[in-house]
Simulated assay, not measured.
Amino acid sequence: MGFSDRAWTIFNQSIADYHLTDDVDCAASNPFENGSLEWLLYAKNWIDTVQWHLEDIIRDENIEPTQALALKRRIDSSNQQRTDLVEYIDSWFYRKYQNVNAADEAKINTETPAWAVDRLSILALKVFHMSLEANRDTASEEHRNKCSDKLSVLLEQKKDLTEAIDRLLFDIENGQVKMRVYKQMKMYNDESLNPVLYQRIKNGEA
């Protein structure tokens, strides 16, 4: 089994485990060895799965403003955790390929392996939920047919993306693409970089 197929299996295991309770407050029970690539992939998708459902909840038009604000803060925190996990996964790949001698003509890819994996994790969630809609017996036949068409497109995207990820890793391993790790350097959570936050601290409001 190639890397992408293994990642896809782990993502779907995480999604299935989450839906045993379908509770955004349920803690993950990661079945893999802590620090292993499998553990990182499972943890990454669990964050994505919980956030998927938080995004559903916050779109309730009848939600209380205080609850919506709390959810927004939680989603912001989840986004930071997601970014951190992506960078950990890239660091794992960097360590794996650090002794590969890149060819003189080696290219730099537009995204790192882990950010491509991030897209695959989200795609697994889209496939899962679109499949539910395509088979939801309380929905109209027209709705199910539209969702079936969309599901076919998502599965075609999955085929293309898994092939692209495996090809990228193959090219890195063979020195045809340089392995890079880029930090996202998000600014909105940093009290020294977000002007709203550092002005508040300066004014003694923290």
Rank of each mutant, 00 (worst) to 15 (best):
N135P: 03
E111S: 12
Y88T: 11
D171C: 00
S192M: 07
Q67C: 03
E64F: 11
R6I: 03
D76R: 05
I122T: 06
L37S: 07
K159Y: 09
A124M: 06
K72Y: 12
T162H: 05
K150D: 13
K146L: 14
P113I: 08
F128H: 15
E205P: 01
E105L: 05
M187F: 06
L85W: 04
L168F: 04
F170Y: 11
V177E: 12
Y97M: 09
R200K: 15
N79I: 03
D190W: 01
V100H: 05
R144G: 15
L161P: 00
S36N: 01
S77G: 08
H53W: 09
L37T: 07
D90C: 00
N109S: 10
S4L: 02
N145C: 09
D171R: 10
K183L: 15
D25R: 12
L169D: 02
A114P: 05
K159L: 10
R95D: 13
L54K: 11
A116D: 03
N189E: 14
N62D: 14
M1Y: 09
D60V: 04
L123R: 07
L168M: 13
L41T: 14
N30L: 05
E55A: 04
Q80R: 01
N30F: 03
H53T: 13
Q67F: 04
A139E: 12
D5P: 05
D166E: 05
E33D: 15
V153G: 08
M179C: 05
L20Y: 09
Y182S: 11
A116T: 02
V117W: 08
S91F: 03
W8R: 00
E87W: 04
L85G: 00
L132M: 06
F11R: 08
C147T: 12
S140E: 03
K159Q: 13
H53N: 15
N109R: 01
S192R: 06
A103R: 13
E173G: 15
N45I: 04
L154C: 08
M130T: 15
L161C: 01
I57C: 00
Y198A: 00
I58G: 01
I57V: 15
A134H: 04
N79S: 07
G175L: 10
A114W: 03
V196S: 08
Y42W: 14
H129K: 04
N99E: 12
E156F: 06
T112D: 10
D160W: 06
E61I: 14
I108V: 13
E61Y: 06
I122K: 11
E38S: 15
S148Q: 14
K44V: 01
H53A: 09
I108F: 04
